[in-house]
């Protein structure tokens, strides 16, 4: 006799992947049906109901059913607009934008600029993360400073950057307003906390006796980092870099203030061109061309970002090996 906590279907016996595929296909068909009859609201109800039923069938406990049902409400809030966004695109307009050289430049800048910001964040963030993981006097102050960009409104972050590094700032020779350097700086400002914190967590997860073992058997601090600590933390660094890159891709406020439009070398054309960061470009397109036209560009940006994100996740999703002995 089944009890309240007994699993109704043994997942390992059935196989996890077929269940996932069946669930996803079911959701896709349900959404397609609801959308085709002009009733997307029905799909929202279907998500909640089907999740509750699936949780009951698979687990059977009232707690799991309740948490799955509550979670499905958030999934509806996050997923339904995305599905609607994708479904409502006009293919011809998406293709037209996909063939537009000015959109190419925007997409290139939208990937390339954040990449530079992520590399900048990692270059200086990883040493800081190592220091934070080791601990030092006054550490809470530095931690607060690192996390500050997470709570500062991003337009304010842009203003702060201009005060710090713009005209009359700390480095007068540094040109940030409307430049590629300024854009990367603005992106790094808001994305560095992700690079630092993910790297720090990776360093903190390493048993300090591994560093002791390295040191006592002859390796100095540099060698220990190169051969032990670095390789063991590299996945955390990559995760931090990906998060920083993703955060920079989505940055609007600080970039709009610091570098609304920038000049950069565009290798496809082999010359210097001018373009806006993708979110700024999407916003401008929305103001000038309306929802449909901005949606097509946004769709392309979303697709490029998702593909790059998935590729990086796939490449880093292996075991902990990979260090240099």
């Amino acid at each position: 006799m089944a009890t309240g906590t007994e699993r109704r279907i043994e997942i390992t016996a059935v196989g996890r992947m077929p269940l996932v595929v069946a669930f996803v296909v079911g959701q896709a068909l349900a959404f397609a049906a609801a959308y085709s009859v002009g009733r997307p609201t029905w799909y929202a109800y279907f998500v909640v109901g089907s999740t509750a039923v699936t949780a009951y069938v698979l687990d059977g406990s009232s707690f799991t059913v309740a948490t799955a049902t509550a979670g499905s409400l958030l999934a509806v809030a996050l997923g339904l607009p995305l599905f609607m966004f994708v479904a409502r695109q006009t293919p011809s307009l998406v293709v037209e934008k996909a063939l537009d050289p000015s959109v190419h430049r925007v997409l290139y800048l939208g990937v390339y600029g954040p990449l530079l910001a992520a590399l900048l964040s990692l270059s200086f963030g990883v040493p800081l993360a190592h220091l934070l993981a080791s601990g030092f006097p006054g550490q809470p102050l530095v931690e607060s400073l690192v996390d500050l960009p997470l709570v500062v409104p991003h337009s304010v972050a842009g203003i702060i950057i201009l005060f710090g590094f713009g005209k009359g700032g700390a480095f007068p020779q540094l040109s940030v307003l409307g430049t590629m350097g300024g854009m990367v700086l603005a992106m790094a400002f808001v994305s560095a906390p992700y690079a630092v914190n993910a790297s720090r967590e990776a360093f903190e997860a390493i048993d300090n006796r591994l560093e002791y073992a390295s040191r006592i058997h002859g390796a100095n601090e540099w060698e220990t980092f190169r051969r032990v600590t670095g390789p063991l933390a590299v996945r955390g660094m990559i995760t931090g870099g990906v998060l920083a890159w993703a955060r920079a891709v989505s940055e609007f406020g600080a970039v709009a203030v610091v570098a609304y439009s920038v000049e950069f070398f565009y290798p496809v054309a082999g010359e210097t061109v001018t373009a806006q960061h993708a979110p700024v470009f999407v916003y401008n397109t929305y103001l000038q061309g309306g929802l449909e036209e901005s949606g097509a560009v946004a769709f392309l940006l979303l697709a490029v970002s998702a593909v790059i994100f998935l590729i990086v996740r796939y490449l880093t999703d292996d075991d902990t090996r990979g260090g240099t002995p």
Binding site: D207, R209, L210, Y212, A213, S214, R215, I216, H217, G218, A219, N220, R227, V228, P231, L232, T320, R321, G322, G323, P325
Partner: peptide
């Protein structure tokens, strides 16, 4: 520093390099 002492160390929880 430890690397210049010429010692060897065996730890309770082994501390082998997992990678």
């Amino acid at each position: 520093p430890p690397e210049e002492r010429g010692f060897g160390f065996v730890f309770q929880d082994y501390a082998l390099f997992p990678h």
